[in-house]
Amino acid sequence: MNIRLIKDSIIQKVSALLLLLALSVVLLIVFGLGSKSLPLLQDQSIWDILSQSVWSPLKGDFGFLPFIMGTVWVTLISLCIAVPLCILASVYLVEYASARLRNFVLPLMNVLAAIPPVLYGVWGVLFVVPIVGGWVAPLFGLSVTGYSVFSGGIVLAVMIFPIMISIMVEVLQTIPQDLKFASLSLGATKWETIQKVILKKAKPGIIAAIVLAISRAFGETIAVLMVCGNIPQVPKSLFDAGYPIPALIANNFGEMMSIPLYDSALMFAALLLFVIIFGFNLISRLILNRLEDKI
């Protein structure tokens, strides 16, 4: 037997083992978090946990509704800001901008993607919160600190710009030039072509980009935690403080050991995040993979 072939097969086996190990992380997460959250689920029904809004671990009340709503609020706000901006900007980059402008802006998006969450948080505290508290809220006759779901949404919006722009630009670039020509040659303006043909054709890809951005927004922890106010209440307006799920885990891990079921509740929160984000990611990746295959 040739030594080269032996080497080859050893490497094959080692890599397969590594792969197995890496993938077992998924099982580890599911079973680890699942078994940890079991005590809570045995104590209360899952429906109660998800729909109750009273959170006081000392009394054994673990209502997740404030946190779910906190996450939903910041995510929705960030989408409302980021989706239209990103669609318009990526259309501009692909259809109107010169190659020079495109080669200038797209690398900047990589920089934006590389900035760590904590720096977004610092920016949020220094810039977004004072503006929301000092300028925007007074416009509505409110006097608040600015630590609110609105600030969280703005910071999150900026954080999901890069992922949306890069995917949308990629999707738009795959649309054949001749399809645009077909519409233009009928006398449509460029904007009409974009609205009625290009965006329609790019819809699945754009949806995938948005879903991916949602899952990113769901899981974002530290930046949102820093600007959101972190009060366990169901937010009623833009300027109310909120308390998203990831912030709940991050803020309370230290004290959870001493209170019964508290650790179980936090692990349940992590499991909830994992399941939701895993699902959203899976959907958008499946869409994107299918689009890639078509080309």
Binding site: P176, D178, L179, F181, A182, S183, S185, K196, V197, K200, K201
Partner: peptide, 10 residues
């Protein structure tokens, strides 16, 4: 315009 390949609008 009738292009090389047919491009029906979506």
């Amino acid at each position: 315009l009738l292009s090389q390949r047919p491009f029906p609008l979506p």
